[in-house]
């Protein structure tokens, strides 16, 4: 076990965990932030997507020991009340079916739009291809990303 000082959603958080613990489980089970989802554990589904210094990463393959001073943003920190343009676009398009993968989808989309405010279809496809949705909401996800880009 080791103590880590993490910066999560703008706040300093201290955890005492095994260094190999993925940030996914640190968030979910040590910091009580279950918005980041477990889907595969092998970085193949994107349900666990968070931002590390603003970039989308899969937290299931990110050991807590590797975070260092980089800033973590989770869905809980994207906005307090769903006011982030991507979240608003998700509501506008009523994207979700079961909803389980959607926080990961939103985090991936938000990171894309941060660096590329007007992505092409191909860029959206490339960025969002790491996030699986078994309910098949991909068309609405794509539409929502485009709407969010317009709002920005």
């Amino acid at each position: 076990m080791a103590v880590y000082n993490l910066k999560v959603n703008g706040k300093s958080r201290q955890v005492d965990v095994d260094p190999t613990t993925p940030v996914l489980w640190v968030l979910r089970e040590h910091l009580n932030m279950p918005g980041t989802k477990y889907g595969c554990g092998v970085s193949m589904c994107g349900a666990c997507t968070i931002h590390l210094n603003g970039n989308a990463v899969h937290s299931c393959q990110l050991p807590v020991s590797s975070v260092g001073s980089r800033e973590i943003t989770t869905i809980e920190g994207l906005s307090e009340n769903g006011s982030h343009p991507v979240q608003k676009a998700w509501l506008e398009h009523d994207v979700a079916q079961c909803g389980y993968c959607q926080t990961g989808q939103i985090m991936t989309a938000a990171a894309l739009l941060r660096t590329n405010p007007n992505p092409t279809d191909a860029q959206i496809e490339a960025a969002m291809n790491g996030n699986i949705c078994r309910c098949g909401t991909y068309l609405r996800i794509k539409d929502a990303v485009k709407s969010a880009a317009k709002q920005k």
Partner: peptide, 15 residues
């Protein structure tokens, strides 16, 4: 439940 879904509220049993 749209707002709860997009803000990552603990809706699921795994949460």
């Amino acid at each position: 439940e749209g707002l709860k879904i997009v803000t990552g509220k603990p809706l699921f049993s795994l949460d």
